[in-house]
Write a protein that binds this DNA or RNA. Structure first.
Lengths: 152, 152
DNA sequence: TCACATTTAATTGTTCGCAATTGAATGTAG
DNA sequence: CTACATTCAATTGCGAACAATTAAATGTGA
């Protein structure tokens, strides 16, 4: 019996989409790093700021649902953003279990300084916007199918 | 002047391919977790094993180039695989700077037990093989363009 | 009202991931 | 052969990421 051709071997690293996604995520991170360094943000912190620039004064849980992250990741991250004077953390008075995250004026104004980031990423992608949008939609659809499986 | 529609706003989270990739990587990780738990591996450890199952007795640097990881990540990870009796680390006698990573018999035989993993991932992806291969190729091409930019 | 479950953040401990540095081995130019 | 640079792995320090647990607040059923 002939051995499986390596280009079809499902156990081969280069045939696995998960490694493609994993390594692409790291490549994005490395492209973002010098851009975000100037803003004093890490990439996950930048994601949190993107969420807050869309809507402010939201509980930690909402940010977590948006980014698929839990309090174990977000609590220390938000404390660092607070230490950097970009957000304020306050217990909700209606529901004392919740901690509401609000932008400070510095946090608000950082949005302007971050405006050029997406274009830089687009340039580094060396790819048309329409192609990127199509890929993004496919990847999001795949992610959502995977997340559906996790919830059984 | 009209404000940009949010579906076109490049600063909007859901319009960013990097977040799609980032969140898909985490979704994959969560799907892999129960499968790899049974093998006693984390996902990055599984990637290292995939590399070693293809070719054995290679220096740390080769594994790093394959997975885009450096010694700061790999050294402790490989020590954990050694502690789990899956690999052996030995200084090369030809070049004493290199540490060669070889599979133990347990490390070799784990490949059989891991054979079903890719099918489980395929099932969770809820997607045809040809679609996945096409997506993988696109993502790899994007990753390689990003990595090309990093190297200036 | 009282007991119990649920929700929400925080905490603890382990593992990645990377920048920066170190130290030893090797390569190279003069 | 002697300086000097380069390569390679290890180390240190910091910031994610997540499982598991904790504690407080809230919701619910009897």
């Amino acid at each position: 019996m002939a051995r499986k051709l390596s280009t079809l071997d499902p156990q081969r690293l280069d045939n696995q989409i998960c490694f493609a996604v994993y390594s692409a995520a790291h490549a994005f991170n490395r492209v973002y790093k010098p851009l975000l360094d100037r803003l004093g943000l890490t990439y996950p912190q930048y994601l949190v700021m993107l969420v807050l620039w869309e809507r402010d004064d939201v509980p930690v849980k909402d940010i977590g649902e948006r980014l698929f992250l839990d309090s174990g990741t977000l609590t220390p991250l938000l404390k660092r953003l607070e230490a950097a004077h970009l957000v304020k953390r306050t217990r909700s008075s209606e529901d004392e279990r919740q901690v509401l995250i609000a932008l400070t004026p510095q946090g608000q104004s950082l949005k302007e300084r971050a405006r050029s980031v997406p274009q830089s990423i687009l340039a580094a992608s060396a790819c048309s916007v329409s192609e990127l949008v199509a890929m993004k939609d496919e990847i999001v659809a795949l992610r959502d199918r995977l997340n559906a499986v996790i919830g059984e």
